[in-house]
Each structure stands twice: as structure tokens, then as C-alpha cells.
Simulated assay, not measured.
Amino acid sequence: MRDMIQQFRRPARHLITSVLALAAGTAAGCSSIDYQKLTTGKLSGSLFVMWVGEGNSSGDGNFLFVPDPRDPLIFHRADRDAPGSAIKPGLMYTDGGSIPKVAQVFKGLSPWGYAPAYMIHDWVFIAHHCIVDGNTEKRFDQVRGVGFKDSAAILGEAIKALIATRQVAPNDVAPGAITAAVGSVVAKNLWDEKGACESLQVSAKDIAAAEAAIPGSTTRAQNLRTFQVPQATVPAVAVKPAKIIARVSFE
């Protein structure tokens, strides 16, 4: 996992892959987030998983989470006054090694594949790091004011939303363990890091590949409502379209 993290310049998935190893151990004892007491959020819209190239021996390749340009994924917290009450995640890398499981999750086959919830949580981390580094882009505004404990609670609430909509099967252990892990000391250390914003951005080449696969998925001109990378970062050259691996939608 660490090799993949370094390979992709500290991509969004770095938190989940670094922390989940602690879920069955000491992390649960370090968290102040009680999954059972969390409210159930609501997911709407759609997202795509795209393959943009070969990875290393640790995974199956380089993958992106891409919001549907016509109906982007949105997460709503039950408490509309809570920090991060409505979150629209933008384009980001995801862990190639977990994509086969993710594809199964989208069909409701695996109780461990909480991929849309991870996307919401990882986008909170990306936005937080960019805000801390002084980024004033509007795409990060809905995450301003979200604290570390809020980020863990948001993940738990998103997992509950997946279970409530039967996207994944109920599980007595996994949701609480994952929520505890992302509320752990290890996760807090990652949250407190500075200077990470630039390294978390999707490359211009991969942005262009996603755009070629689904026009409007990354360009602001056609997708003003979503939090996306600026159009200026997309190179004006012909590129091979990314391969769409899976799509998941919420009513």
C-alpha cells in the first residue's frame, strides 16, 4: 500500500489505505466517534470509476473517481446545520488495488466496499489540505469549517447511507472499525499535515483522459455545479479516453 501511495504523489486514497490496517487493532480504542450513535446521511447522484493507466505490482492500475457531469454525487448530512452539510466530491485518484472489489460493491455484492463513502471522506481530506495551504477556490467552500472529528463522522454517516439504500449489505463489524480507524491518531496526523494540496491533484494527462471518456466530466464550462479541477489544466491535445470500469447511482 505504501508503494502505491508514493507512486501517485500522495493521492486521495492515502488516508484510507494507511489507516484501515489499524481498524482491527489499536485504532478502535483511539477514536471518539461512536458509529452506532451517528445519524444516517443521504447520497444522491452518480459517479464513475475510470482506469487511466497501468500501475505497479501492488495494484491493478491507476484509477479515478469521476462525478457524473449531469448528475454529480452529493452527500447530505442529516443535520443540515452541521459542518459539511452538503458535499460534492470532485475528480480524484482511487486505489487501483481495490477496484475489483469496488466494481462488486456497485452491484451490491460486498459489505466491505464502501467506495462512495470513501470518496466523500477523501474529498474532505483533499479540500482540508488545500484550504490549510491557502487555496481559496470555491470548489472547496463546502468543506470549510469541517474539523477532524467531523470528517470521521461524515464517513460513518455515508456508510450508513449505503446500508440504508441497500448498496451494501449490513455488517456488524466493518462500519464501526472503519469509522474508528479514520478517527484514530494516525488519521489525525495525516489531517494535520501541511503542504499536501499540490501533490493531491489529478495530473493534466489523467484529467484529459477522463474528459475524453465523458465530455463535460471535468470542464467547468459544462459542469459548473460540481467541484472540479480548472479547465486550464487540461492539455489541448488528443488523448486516449479513460476506460469506464463502473458506475453507481443513487436516487
Rank of each mutant, 00 (worst) to 15 (best):
M50H: 10
P215N: 15
P72E: 03
D34P: 03
L91E: 01
P72K: 02
E211W: 01
F148G: 08
D172Q: 12
C30A: 13
M50L: 10
P11K: 04
A152W: 03
L73I: 09
K138A: 15
Y118W: 11
I163N: 04
R139K: 12
D79G: 05
S203I: 05
T17K: 10
V52Q: 05
D68Q: 04
P89N: 12
G59S: 06
G25M: 11
N62V: 14
P230V: 10
S57R: 01
A82V: 09
P241N: 07
T94A: 01
R2T: 13
L43C: 07
G96Y: 01
L38I: 13
K205V: 11
N171V: 06
N62D: 11
S58H: 07
P69F: 02
L73E: 00
I159C: 04
M119S: 05
G61V: 02
A238Y: 02
K243V: 08
V237G: 09
V49G: 01
D133T: 07
C197S: 10
A152T: 01
C130K: 04
A158N: 13
R144Q: 11
R77L: 05
T136E: 15
A236M: 08
D206N: 15
H76A: 09
K107C: 12
F125W: 13
A24R: 08
R225K: 08
I244P: 01
Q104A: 03
T179E: 05
G84V: 01
M119Q: 02
L91R: 01
G183Q: 08
Q167M: 07
I5M: 06
K138F: 09
G176A: 12
P215S: 14
G61M: 04
V229Q: 11
Y118T: 04
D172I: 05
P111M: 02
R166K: 15
D150E: 14
T26L: 14
D71G: 04
P67A: 06
P83C: 10
